[in-house]
Structure formats: structure tokens, C-alpha cells
């Protein structure tokens, strides 16, 4: 399943890149693209475990860029 989320307060381009890298490492994430310019994250992950994966994604996001919120 592929989904696009809006990101709030993603303030730096490098953080977006770091976020992208650390989210890509999560199990079950097939592809992820964090766009600093569009303030959006598009993510493709396993269907059956999507919500759990997203919880993990939010955790990673908090760790890398605590100011940034993923609008679910």
C-alpha cells in the first residue's frame, strides 16, 4: 500500500534526508520519500502491517526530528 502523509514543521532539508534514511531501514517499508519542499512523505509498506509500521515511522521521526509531526 502506498500512502502520502503531510508533515508539519519539517524545518530543515538535511533532517528530511536523515528521516528518509532512517525510515527506509524499518522492516516492511518498501520505499519512502520525504520531500522537504512539499512537506510530504510518501511511503510504501506491507499492507497487513501498515499501521504498526506507521507507528514505528512516527517513532523514528520523533527521534530524528522531534519538531516534525506526521499528520495521519
Amino acid at each position: 500500500m502506498k500512502k502520502v502523509y503531510r508533515l508539519e514543521d519539517l524545518d530543515c532539508a538535511n533532517c528530511a534526508a536523515k528521516m528518509e534514511r532512517s525510515i527506509a531501514k524499518i522492516d516492511g517499508v518498501k520505499s519512502v520519500s520525504v520531500s522537504f519542499m512539499a512537506q510530504r512523505m510518501s511511503i510504501e509498506a506491507d499492507d497487513d502491517n501498515f499501521e504498526n509500521i506507521m507507528d514505528e515511522v512516527v517513532k523514528k521521526c520523533k527521534k530524528v526530528e522531534p519538531d516534525c509531526k506526521i499528520i495521519r
Partner: peptide, 8 residues
């Protein structure tokens, strides 16, 4: 347009 920048 919204998804344009996802394709890097």
C-alpha cells in the same frame, strides 16, 4: 502536483 517532489 502535490506528489511531484516525491520522485527525486
Amino acid at each position: 502536483v502535490e506528489n511531484a517532489s516525491a520522485q527525486k
